[in-house]
């Protein structure tokens, strides 16, 4: 500090605060500023690498050319992608303490409902229906939920690291948004392996997967979010 500079007015607040200021200024090191775009690029890279590895390990469903002709395949891919971007985007933006995640979280939840509603339209366009329980195929469904959860782990961990470095004002809502986004990212990767194109099956089991991973992530990330 220059010799002619006025003494910090904070010293009037008390010796302890003055000593703290001296210690913090003495410990000061240059820091790399956090940017939302860099954090988003990190998460996008994690999901991209995961997808490539997953496909390289034989995760791709064998009838992919046929599946890509189904509207339901594009619906589930687009839905999971949009929810993932909305959820993780909301989570990343809210790592700035001056930004609340509540509005983004509401939009993400509305997006989930919109995707489910779009599924009904896709379902209505399908010829013929069979019994609901048979379509839900709970044995395969539980397997799908399990795989979605495992595939969400890299995104949850990546978001957790960024969350730890950030300063969320509302840790609970940020954890919900990030958890939902990470769950959708895992589901997005799983879309390339998912054998079902039935909108009812997808709406039911993907919703279960999103809810489950979001809830677990909320608990885990909520602890990381404290600062």
């Amino acid at each position: 500090m220059p010799a002619d500079a006025p003494p910090p007015s904070g010293r009037r607040a008390g010796d302890a605060t003055g000593a703290l200021i001296e210690r913090l200024a003495g410990d000061l090191k240059p820091v790399r500023r956090r940017t939302t775009w860099r954090d988003a690029a990190v998460l996008a890279a994690i999901v991209a690498v995961e997808l490539v590895l997953f496909l390289a390990m034989g995760g791709l469903r064998p009838d992919m050319p046929m599946a890509m002709k189904q509207p339901s395949w594009w619906w589930k891919l687009g839905s999971m992608g949009a929810i993932g971007i909305a959820g993780l985007g909301t989570g990343l933006l809210s790592l700035d303490p001056a930004r609340s995640p509540r509005r983004g979280l509401r939009i993400t939840i509305l997006l989930v409902l919109l995707c489910v509603a779009l599924g009904w339209l896709v379902d209505a366009a399908r010829p013929g229906t069979t019994a609901l329980l048979a379509r839900l195929d709970w044995r395969q469904g539980i397997g799908c939920v399990w795989k979605m959860a495992v595939l969400a782990i890299p995104a949850v961990l990546g978001f957790g690291v960024l969350l730890r470095r950030g300063a969320p004002f509302d840790g609970a809502a940020t954890s919900w948004a990030g958890g939902l986004g990470a769950a959708a990212a895992g589901a997005f990767v799983f879309v390339f392996a998912c054998p079902s194109d039935d909108p009812l099956y997808i709406a039911a089991w993907y919703a279960v997967g999103l809810a489950l991973v979001s809830a677990v992530s909320r608990v885990i990330l909520g602890r990381v979010a404290r600062w």
Binding site: M1, P2, A5, P7, P8, S9, G10, R11, R12, A13, T17, I21, E22, L24, A25, G26, L28, K29, P30
Partner: peptide
């Protein structure tokens, strides 16, 4: 950027 004098002044200013 690591300027301790600026930082000290800032912390002193924001304390009141």
């Amino acid at each position: 950027d690591g300027d301790a004098a600026s930082y000290r002044r800032l912390l002193g200013d924001v304390t009141p």
